[in-house]
Design a protein around this nucleic acid. Structure first.
Lengths: 233, 233
DNA sequence: TCGCTGAAAATTGTTAACAAATATCAGGAA
DNA sequence: TTCCTGATATTTGTTAACAATTTTCAGCGA
């Protein structure tokens, strides 16, 4: 969950000055988190009077936060009726996996072209740390937990394409997390995934962008296929 | 934009029944159009009192519309300072082209797999119509005008992935249009582009998803390269 | 029971006023 | 001149009240 904050704060001395966050921004963050964590159930109504009481603010900034969520496609608003938390069906989840497959492939190719030796070392470190975790705990833990996300996040970051990062690690990540919460489904092939991660890092170290792209697309394609199998079953 | 009228209203003329659009939604549409067309210059400040006067509404719904634009990443808001129309530099434009290259490749592959014979016929019709326009007017016209967009839109639509459509033909299209307005740059290789469009349709007709993807990636990669050359010059 | 009606309640949309922060700019000092 | 200062004006953030619409639900009749 350690996402870099690219709107960096100005200076160390100013670090103590509390950022002038507006109520709207605060509530936007809290609502988005609540939605992504499933505390606000997919498909459920967003009740303005209730939430404004709950957060202790008036409806003005709350409505602005909801409008921003609408722009992010996390809620849908029908005029004179209200906002509903977006809800994904399996077809829509597959659509997102298709996009992720393509874009993380791109990220991998770019990362292979642009990553420095230090960057590759970081990736190796990360995988080594994961290996420790896996051995000390249980193979099940790895893919299901944040370890998988850390790996993907780092590669997308190494791609150097900041819009790609925002898209994959922001919007699409939120939607997929929403879907997982909604269906209580978790990825379920930890050992294989770990092997594939190693192969991908190998390709990155060899600066083989095409291979890295291919491997990542396969890697996510497998997860997509698992989902499709569930759909057909 | 047709009105869904569930209640059996007298219906003297459905066209006259004004849709229950909120002021916020109306102004959102108008602002987005103004931004994408460049009427609100990139980087310029979004002044609430001025706009609320101009549109004849109060600041409440106007601010909601601006917050929604923020969610769409078309404006950036700094607390206590206000909203600015987003402005893209060349690096950011290249980032978008990289994403488009990958995603339109995906769209092409999916379109090749899913498009029906009728769909392919529609594409052929579209290209034939473009060919007429080109011959009757000027080769310059084609790639610069909406013809190019029509072609890309249709393919993305044929992919059957609605989120992909919203992403490519919604968000990314708006941003690229913004960049073109900003730099007054227009694509400049109409003849070659037209040939490439034909090749892509050929691949689609042959149901060759891999080739279609490759060709589309090259097609957009060329446009990206043109941009990079401008950057280095 | 079922479905309809319509008044009451709750919710959403909009506005205007006030509070707080920032931007502007005249005036003065080095 | 150039750079500060600080009073003023403007803009943004927030609230509460009002208007309009939808939802709820008791009452009624077939």
């Amino acid at each position: 969950m350690s996402i870099t904050n690219h709107q960096g704060y100005p200076a160390p001395s100013l670090a103590l000055i509390k950022r002038a966050e507006t109520l709207s921004n605060i509530v936007f963050d809290q609502l988005r988190t609540a939605i992504v964590k499933g505390e606000l159930a997919p498909g459920s109504k967003v009740n303005e009077p209730q939430l404004s009481k709950q957060y202790g603010i008036s409806r003005g900034p709350l409505r602005e936060a909801i409008r921003r969520l609408e722009g992010c496609k996390l809620v849908e608003i029908r005029p004179n009726v209200g906002a509903k938390v977006v809800s994904l069906n399996k077809e829509q989840a597959i659509e997102i996996y298709e996009i992720r497959e393509s874009l993380e492939g791109l990220a991998c190719r770019l990362a292979a072209e642009r990553a420095s030796a230090d960057d590759c070392a970081s990736l190796r470190d990360l995988l080594a740390k994961h290996e420790q975790q896996i051995e000390s705990e249980n193979y099940q833990m790895y893919y299901q937990k944040e370890g998988d996300l850390d790996f993907h996040y780092l590669i997308v970051q190494l791609s150097g394409n900041s819009r790609l990062f925002n898209l994959l690690c922001g919007e699409l990540y939120h939607l997929l997390r929403l879907y997982r919460v909604q269906t209580s489904s978790e990825p379920s092939r930890p050992v294989q995934a770990f092997k594939e991660h190693h192969q991908i890092v190998d390709a990155l170290e060899q600066r083989d962008g095409e291979l890295a792209e291919l491997l990542m697309r396969r890697h996510i394609g497998s997860a997509k296929q698992t989902l499709i199998n569930q759909l057909n079953q």
